[in-house]
Design a protein around this nucleic acid. Structure first.
Lengths: 409, 409
DNA sequence: CGAGGATTCTTCAGTTACTAAACAAAGAAA
DNA sequence: TTTCTTTGTTTAGTAACTGAAGAATCCTCG
């Protein structure tokens, strides 16, 4: 037998499930075509998924000359996942179903300087309340996704939360979560190469290459906020000069606006006068509002920022050969309408591979709550489409070997 | 059931072979530890590789209290590969063994405006001469790798060369080839994430993520030459402003040097006066020579270029979370000693993940012939470590499905 | 020197997940 | 109705692994 098809996807089951999710609705024959597996294999795999309740037969396609295809769909309400976004100002909780659709959502004040143990207890309580509010059985919750701007600072918190809730907890970067959320919700193709450009108070990017999340060896992938756009530019906290964030991030925009008396007054910026919980986010929102209402100084400021963001986005697209770029995160939720056309124009005119394939630039439909939704999507992905566990290939093989050799014979 | 001496799975075989290559010398137990497979599996896989002549037992390790481990090594002279680098000025041919070491090498004048059919015949003849010069049997040549700055323009040429030589031909980008060459030769770890920054007349980067070459959906990955470093900078041929190539590429350096009368005279630049075959490459070499001899104007010019290249390299490293950055290609072969310290300083002080893991910046030991060696390495990789063929996951599944549905029952 | 333990490598039955091919079911065309 | 097409299931066979037992080799110690 020639059978080459031992599939490299972690499991065929996961691959088929992911295809059903990505397609929305598909028949067994469609799965045969999409996977390259035989009808027999698809038949048994699908039966297993139906028995588990994850997939359901939902109707028939019209005949194409023979028996009609039985259509399959993800049983969206078979399982759920909790997503939690830790921000300085607020903690956002969402409960999503298998399709990544938000079933329930609450938002509470940030933890501030509270005792870690107290925060764990509080987050566990609030997550429980979220689950109870829609009456979902506990064993249908796949897990809890936790995202933050600097996930490495929340490792201990995640472990404690795991104990407190009894749910598996996965921890990730907000930008990566946003990218996975977009991917899971089906806005972009199943195998597409795309980035989610994430703007909160900082700027980052979540990267999905050919349908697979790329995190990098230390999870620091996509740090586009520190792309250099001016080698003699202002010094950034990261140690370099001319970083995108320092030139055009929300904090920089707010600072520039505050230097403008007229704009400060017109937009009603608070940061200059009082100590709000999140002066940058609030003032950036105020500037965006002013721009939408026609304040030319605000428009000029944001368009200047957009030009820098667009240049960095072009660099990102050129380096990764992107097919899709999604703008997401709280700042794009507010000011996306100003940034989007500038980024589109830049990539339409200067993306290096534009003659080979187009690059689609769009605004996330749920930019504001993208991190929390993405957090839940990470749980869905990690539980239902486990990572392909390739062979371990340690770097220092020599170290595993005894150092002294003697010639053969 | 228990059939004797079965052929093992292609991808396992490939993984084991790749481990033997990467480790240099390893025992069966070492392979068990590295792969996670059982001893029995490793035993049969290794027997197959030894039967094929690809691997050999080369000695014993010292005992750790029991039977001594039998050490395995790649049989470097079991197979060979030809690498061809098409440049405007020159065509470089190398013959490498399984380890990626150069066994023979010739270089001839570029094709210029010659008839394509004549060039095919000539390249086939010269490749044959290369093979004959070391007396390697034809059936030990795995194939011919062909690299160029714009591979898409050489598709037809590659097919014709395949017919003319009777060897499988693989075509790729020069920067990608250089990266694979570095990876295969073992300079970087087996699973490391690194980029080969390639500077010829343009600037590009070959990208290897976690040991796997990343080419992107259209093969345009790593276009760092068009990273934006000045949003109001000079216009580049790509349509954008302030691209690295336009600001600091070899062509830009040469242009800046020609504007300097004293430097033009001191370095003996030809481009300004005569029509050399490759004025940019020749003049860039002349400037580098002048800089090494202490000409301060030349040094200033190259260091200015290095600052831009360093800023782009930092952006690349931040976006991809790189562990290693290798400088390669003809221009770094000439001027690497000037660029290297500037890039090192930049990344040591401003790489965003520097506190989590260091980034190693180094010059390729074979920068000048990296494209040709890499071309051969691509053949080795594609023939010996075939791509894991995952499931096909077409993007537009909906299109494969009949559009009209009717409710079930 | 030889028994006994440690370690490495091989053999082989059993399991899993696939394929190929025959079969069954359902609709269209005639 | 009969015949053809298409979809989905069942079944036998097999590639590629695992796990456990056994053989081979080396060291140590009485």
């Amino acid at each position: 037998m020639s059978g080459p098809a031992r599939v490299t996807h972690a499991s065929t089951r996961a691959a088929v499930l992911d295809l059903v999710r990505a397609a929305g609705m598909i028949s067994r024959v469609g799965l045969v075509n999409a996977t390259g597996l035989t009808g027999g294999t698809i038949s048994t795999v699908v039966r297993g998924l139906i028995d588990e309740g994850l997939v359901a037969e939902t109707g028939h396609a019209e005949s194409t000359g023979g028996k009609r295809r039985v259509m399959l769909q993800l049983n969206h309400f078979a399982r759920y996942a909790v997503g939690v976004h830790l921000d300085d100002a607020r903690i956002t909780y969402v409960l999503t179903n298998l399709g990544g659709a938000v079933v329930a959502r609450i938002s509470r004040a940030g933890a501030g300087a509270d005792e870690p143990a107290a925060v764990v207890a509080r987050v566990a309580r609030e997550a429980d309340a979220l689950i109870d509010s829609v009456g979902v059985e506990r064993d249908r919750i796949l897990g809890l996704g936790l995202v933050a701007a600097r996930p490495s600072e929340h490792h201990e918190f995640g472990r404690a939360l795991e104990r407190a809730t009894g749910l598996p907890v996965v921890l990730d970067h907000d930008a990566t979560a946003a990218a996975i959320g977009e991917h899971w919700s089906g806005g972009v193709g199943a195998t597409s190469t795309f980035a989610a450009l994430f703007m909160g108070t900082g700027i980052g990017a979540g990267v999905v290459l050919g349908g697979t999340t790329y995190r990098g060896p230390s999870g620091h992938t996509g740090e586009i906020g520190h792309a250099c756009l001016d080698i003699d530019g202002p010094r950034c906290w990261c140690g370099a000069k001319g970083c995108l964030e320092a030139l055009a991030g929300p904090a920089a925009v707010v600072e520039q606006a505050r230097a403008d008396r007229a704009l400060t007054r017109a937009a009603g910026l608070v940061g200059g006068r009082t100590r709000a919980a999140t002066p940058v986010a609030a003032d950036f929102a105020a500037i965006s509002r002013a721009a939408r209402q026609g304040n030319t100084r605000a428009v000029t400021l944001l368009e200047r920022s957009a030009r820098y963001v667009a240049a960095a986005a072009r660099t990102l697209a050129n380096v990764l050969d992107l097919e899709v770029l999604v703008l997401t995160g709280p700042s794009f939720a507010i000011a996306g309408s100003i940034y989007l056309p500038v980024l589109r124009a830049e990539l339409d005119s200067a993306f290096i591979a534009r003659d080979v394939h187009p690059i689609s630039v769009r605004l996330s439909p749920s930019a504001a709550s993208a991190p929390a939704i993405g957090a839940a999507a990470i749980v869905l992905q990690s539980e239902l489409v486990p990572r392909r566990q390739g062979l371990r290939l340690p770097d220092d093989l020599a170290a595993e070997e005894p150092p002294v050799f003697q010639a053969l014979r």
